[in-house]
Simulated assay, not measured.
Amino acid sequence: MPTFKLPLSGDVMQSINPWSDMFKAFGSQFGLININLGRSSAPEIEQDILTEVGSYGRQIGRIGEALEVLIDHLDLKSLTPKQEAALAAFKAMQGEIAEIKAYHQKAERVA
């Protein structure tokens, strides 16, 4: 490698290895995307579910959609104010999620 000197400096030499530099930032992570499954009693099963069925976000999204169906058929007259507030908060959260999804779908169509 040729020697490069700036004014008022000594020799400037830097070895650049993108692989080792990239992995230093991640510590012991070996892939670009690693999932920490935490304290799972069956991490192999969890990994298979994530690979074959869907991400945690997809799973939670489907649970939310199923809950919306059940809520729509629920007799709301028998709920306490606290229960009504919980449902209202859930519906508000689902509405915010729907807005974010719509925004990203619109952005994908434009791109």
Rank of each mutant, 00 (worst) to 15 (best):
M1C: 06
T3Y: 09
F4R: 08
K5H: 12
K5T: 14
K5A: 10
L6R: 14
G10M: 03
G10F: 00
G10A: 03
M13P: 00
N17A: 15
P18S: 09
W19Q: 11
M22N: 09
K24M: 13
F26L: 03
G27D: 06
S28C: 11
L32V: 07
L32A: 11
I33L: 15
I33G: 08
N34T: 09
N36M: 09
L37C: 09
L37F: 04
L37E: 07
G38A: 11
R39W: 10
R39P: 07
R39T: 15
R39S: 15
S40K: 11
S41A: 10
S41W: 08
P43E: 10
E44R: 10
I45L: 03
Q47F: 06
I49V: 15
L50F: 08
E52P: 00
V53A: 15
V53D: 12
G54C: 04
G54K: 06
S55F: 05
Y56E: 12
R58P: 03
I60K: 03
I60D: 01
G61N: 08
R62H: 03
E65A: 15
L67V: 05
L67Y: 00
L67C: 04
L70C: 05
L70A: 11
D72W: 00
D72Q: 14
D75M: 11
D75A: 09
L76C: 04
L76G: 03
K77I: 03
K77V: 08
K77M: 12
S78Q: 14
L79Q: 01
T80V: 04
T80G: 04
K82V: 08
K82M: 00
Q83T: 05
E84F: 06
E84P: 00
A85Y: 00
A86V: 07
A86L: 15
L87A: 01
A88Y: 02
F90W: 11
K91C: 11
M93T: 11
Q94A: 15
G95E: 13
E96D: 13
E96I: 02
E96P: 03
E96N: 06
I97R: 04
I97W: 03
A98K: 02
K101L: 12
K101V: 14
A102R: 10
H104C: 02
H104Y: 01
H104W: 01
Q105K: 11
E108N: 09
R109E: 13
V110P: 01
A111V: 10
